[in-house]
Amino acid sequence: MSHGGGGGALPGTLPRAQAFRLPGRHGYAVEFSPYLPGRLACATSQYYGIAGCGTLVILEQTEAGIHLFRSFDWNDSLFDVTWSENNEHVLVTSSGDGSLQIWDTENLTGPLQVYKEHSQEVYSVDWSQTRGEQLIISGSWDQTVKLWDPAVAQSLCTFKGHEGVIYSTIWSPHIPSCFASVSGDQTLRIWDAKAPRLPVIIPAHQAEILSCDWCKYDQNLLITGAVDCSLKGWDLRNIRQPVFSLLGHTYAVRRVKFSPFHPTLLASCSYDFTVRFWDFSKPDPLLETVEHHTEFTCGLDLSLYHPGQVADCAWDETVKVYNPSSLAVPA
Results as ranks from 00 to 15, higher is better:
126 D>A: 15
90 V>M: 14
88 E>W: 09
119 S>K: 12
111 P>W: 01
117 E>S: 09
93 T>N: 00
113 Q>W: 10
92 V>L: 01
121 E>M: 07
107 N>Y: 13
130 T>A: 08
95 S>Y: 00
104 D>T: 03
126 D>Y: 07
106 E>K: 14
100 L>S: 06
116 K>E: 11
115 Y>S: 02
115 Y>N: 04
105 T>V: 13
124 S>K: 10
97 D>V: 03
102 I>V: 13
90 V>E: 13
100 L>D: 08
115 Y>R: 05
94 S>Q: 08
117 E>H: 13
97 D>L: 01
104 D>Y: 01
92 V>I: 12
129 Q>W: 05
116 K>I: 02
94 S>H: 03
90 V>A: 06
100 L>M: 07
119 S>D: 12
106 E>V: 08
124 S>T: 06
129 Q>C: 11
91 L>Y: 05
95 S>E: 03
117 E>R: 11
122 V>K: 03
122 V>I: 02
101 Q>K: 13
127 W>S: 04
87 N>R: 11
105 T>A: 14
127 W>R: 11
110 G>E: 09
90 V>I: 14
111 P>C: 01
131 R>F: 12
107 N>A: 09
101 Q>G: 12
120 Q>E: 15
131 R>N: 11
94 S>V: 05
118 H>A: 05
112 L>A: 03
91 L>G: 08
115 Y>W: 13
100 L>A: 06
130 T>W: 07
89 H>G: 07
88 E>V: 13
90 V>Y: 06
92 V>F: 13
102 I>P: 04
129 Q>V: 11
129 Q>M: 11
108 L>K: 10
116 K>A: 09
115 Y>T: 03
95 S>W: 00
100 L>I: 06
96 G>Q: 10
113 Q>N: 07
120 Q>S: 14
87 N>G: 10
122 V>D: 00
131 R>K: 15
127 W>H: 10
128 S>A: 14
128 S>T: 14
93 T>K: 00
129 Q>R: 15
100 L>F: 06
98 G>R: 02
99 S>H: 04
116 K>D: 04
126 D>N: 14
110 G>W: 08
96 G>E: 03
107 N>L: 07
109 T>E: 13
89 H>P: 02
97 D>W: 01
100 L>R: 06
110 G>K: 05
91 L>F: 05
131 R>Q: 15
88 E>G: 08
131 R>Y: 14
129 Q>H: 09
123 Y>D: 14
105 T>Y: 06
129 Q>D: 07
90 V>C: 13
89 H>N: 15
120 Q>P: 02
109 T>A: 13
122 V>C: 01
102 I>M: 15
104 D>S: 03
108 L>C: 12
122 V>H: 07
110 G>C: 07
128 S>R: 09
113 Q>F: 10
